[in-house]
Nucleic acid binder design. Structure first.
Length: 112
DNA sequence: TTGCTGACTGCCT
DNA sequence: CAGGCAGCCAGCA
């Protein structure tokens, strides 16, 4: 499996409960600027048994980026609400819920 | 190699 | 706020 995909997955594990990131932000944090579409692909092909917090990734607009009719769409909304993230009309207020780690937090997280 | 597609973005109407 | 669209970059036929 592609090393870039693995970076996306491992970076996603750092996103704390109750916070969200955009695809582009996730790629940036993984050290892969301009690879937001790769981040999307990484989530799509991620094995279920990895138990990644895939639901904490949204479009930069705050919209859920899955087909509204799909089971996963409903599941993502449910998972987010379960951890305190407000979802209104399929959209999250990114100003309030975006994960914005500062350098100290990132370093701490990477050590544990 | 070429062309098309997509769980994306930013810009412009 | 909703579309439309070009740019983007892997994966796949």
């Amino acid at each position: 499996m592609n090393i870039a995909i693995k970076k996306i997955w491992s970076t996603l594990q750092l996103v704390p409960t109750g916070k969200v990131v955009s695809y582009g932000q996730l790629a940036d944090l993984a050290g892969l600027p301009r690879r937001h579409r790769l981040a999307a692909r990484a989530l799509k092909i991620a094995p279920t048994e990895m138990a990644l917090p895939w639901h904490r990734v949204l479009a930069t607009s705050g919209q859920i980026s899955i087909a509204k009719e799909s089971d996963n769409y409903r599941k993502q909304m449910e998972l987010l609400r379960n951890e305190g993230v407000e979802v209104i009309n399929g959209r999250v207020d990114m100003k309030r819920f975006r994960w914005q780690p500062d350098l100290a937090e990132l370093l701490w997280t990477l050590q544990h």
